[in-house]
Design a protein around this nucleic acid. Structure first.
Lengths: 162, 162
DNA sequence: CGCGTTGGGTTGATGTGTCAACCCAGCCGG
DNA sequence: CCGGCTGGGTTGACACATCAACCCAACGCG
């Protein structure tokens, strides 16, 4: 597996902890900004982005679940909360299973906050990396996701044994 | 601020979303592994690491708060939960304010899971990056934290106006 | 002394994520 | 026709994070 055994050496430790700190700092900064300025959580934002990018502002729940990669129960809980706040609506349609529709209010909310959010992502993340390093980050990220995916393809059948 | 306006172009969008997916995938994978194999959450792990690295396995709460960068209320809540589970103890000492002490059980728990955890970090993250790219990640992470920190130094006095 | 302020720490309310169990329609094999 | 299975979706219980409010000892200063 690894040429160096399980442990991380000092330099790796340092980089790993820097990464962890950065991840948390960026996460809370962005989330806080959205919350304070626009009353939206990061989760709200993610759902609204997906809906607003879809053809008619409406998707089945399991499409959302596919594109966000959320667990179905998290999605269900969050959608009921968002419906209570008027950001989305569940609309019955011909074939069983309701469609999730973005409301006027939801559309207005995301249109209002998206530019400010994007600007912060650019200022504190994209521009700090710079084009080259940022492109590399994108590539490596895909590799990491693949690596974990391959591992789980191997394991999950085993873990799901009963 | 930015030479390109607030929006992200297509390539940047793609990298950003790759990063977001990677971050979540890695996070849930590591957390799930710790939880299922050892009954520890990532938060438990972080506290136990800090305590076990301290001189006598004991620190004041606010030292923990400094080294983890957690909010004090999060820390307080989590420490009471961990005490209930026997991983730590709050011990009264001479000068006001109790010390947080890692228990035998807590020490055993972290010693047991740390190698497996480190191995997963290495396998799915460090080794996928490779030494060079990983070192760069560490550096850029520090820069991002600095950038956000500088911004908040400017703003927080204003935000904290009353 | 008395009184306000600061700072470490706790508490409660609330919103959120996770797990496991469940519901139910459709499907498939007898 | 019936029984079990699958898959989209909901629910409830619980662990967790965040915010604001609070507690209280120590300090500063009139």
């Amino acid at each position: 597996m690894s040429s160096k055994g399980p442990w991380l050496d000092d330099g790796e430790q340092k980089s790993w902890r820097s990464y962890l700190l950065m991840k948390r700092t960026l996460e809370t900064h962005l989330e806080r900004h959205l919350q304070r300025e626009f009353g939206l959580s990061g989760s709200d934002f993610e759902i609204l982005v997906n809906l607003s990018e879809s053809d008619a502002g409406r998707m089945r729940a399991f499409e959302l679940s596919r594109s966000t990669q959320w667990e179905k129960s998290r999605l269900s809980h969050h959608l009921t909360r968002m419906e209570k706040r008027g950001l989305i609506r569940k609309e019955a349609c011909d074939s069983r299973y309701p469609e999730i529709v973005i409301t006027e209010e939801g559309l207005a909310a995301i249109k209002e906050c998206a530019p400010a959010h994007a600007a912060r992502v650019r200022e504190f993340f994209v521009d700090v990396f710079g084009p080259d390093r940022f492109a590399v980050l994108g590539e490596v990220s895909d590799e990491v996701v693949d690596a974990i995916g391959r591992h789980c393809d191997d394991d999950c059948p085993l873990e799901a044994r009963s």
